[in-house]
């Protein structure tokens, strides 16, 4: 009987243990990024921009040329990289504290200018590395170390829906929200990521994918329960799907 390898570690993903907690979605998103770079034959043409947060160590796991950006500034750094080397593939990998709070100005203007870069945005509704503080995406009622009674709409505002905001900007070619909780969603996620990379490669504009992800440690949940929370609590507030796709005309005014 013949057999083939149906699944193995993609080559751009380093063969080493990660520092991530058990069940953390970063490992899944890292793998999807590495697979997509490999599938699109971009590995040796890529310059990545890592951000601040748990994923700052991106460069230890995805083996491509990488520059580390200050907190929130990855889209500005990526702008500098892309303008300096327009023929290179450039992506940032940012969490929700990095992108939707301290880096809000940078992400908005990078998208609005239509920089030919792709952004991998991991939304787990919390600051992971610093110990579970409230994020701009923390759901109403969600308890964190800085909103111990749960996020309150009156004093902390509503969680920010980034994919929709990014889709509304003129330079955005593709903006989508995906989740990593089920096999079906993982397949959709990979397609979305590929599209966000393709719009850059084809010079169409800015590509953005928001991944709904877990942080079992700071959510104080088991990995399995954390995964269930994506479907039960996150997706109802953060709907999945493409919010803009210039290749199909979706979301284009």
């Amino acid at each position: 009987m013949t057999e083939k390898i149906a699944f193995e570690r993609p080559k751009p993903l380093a063969d080493r243990a990660t520092h991530y907690c058990p069940g953390c979605s970063h490992g899944i998103v890292h793998r999807l990024v590495a697979e997509t770079l490999q599938d699109m034959d971009l590995v040796e043409n890529t310059i990545a921009v890592s951000a601040i947060g748990c994923s700052v160590f991106l460069y230890n796991y995805i083996m491509v040329d990488t520059v580390e950006a200050p907190h929130g500034r990855a889209p500005a750094v990526a702008t500098g990289v892309k303008r300096a080397r327009p023929d290179r593939f450039v992506f940032t990998y940012q969490g929700d504290g990095d992108l939707a709070s301290i880096g809000m100005a940078e992400i908005m203007h990078c998208a609005n200018r239509g920089e030919r870069v792709s952004v991998v945005f991991v939304n787990n509704t919390i600051y992971g590395m610093t110990g579970g503080q409230m994020a701009p995406t923390t759901l109403v009622g969600q308890k964190t170390t800085t909103c111990p009674s749960g996020r309150c709409r009156d004093s902390e505002g509503m969680p920010i829906r980034m994919a929709e905001i990014i889709a509304s900007l003129g330079g955005t070619a593709y903006a989508s929200r995906v989740a990593v909780d089920t096999i079906k969603h993982l397949n959709q996620a990979k397609k979305a990521l590929r599209k966000a990379f393709e719009v850059q490669v084809n010079g169409l504009g800015f590509g953005f994918v928001e991944f709904l992800a877990t942080c079992p440690t700071n959510w104080k949940m088991s990995s399995i329960d954390a995964n269930k929370r994506i479907a039960e609590e996150m997706i109802p507030y953060f709907p999945l799907g493409d919010f803009k796709d210039v290749t199909t005309g979706k979301g284009v005014c």
């Binding site: 013949t2 057999e3 699944f7 570690r9 990660t18 991530y20 979605s25 970063h26 096999i183």
Partner: peptide
């Protein structure tokens, strides 16, 4: 199993 594994622990061999 391999697709959802955050740590790339699993290699899958499929019978042809």
């Amino acid at each position: 199993c391999a697709m959802i594994c955050p740590d790339t622990v699993i290699t899958v061999y499929k019978t042809v």
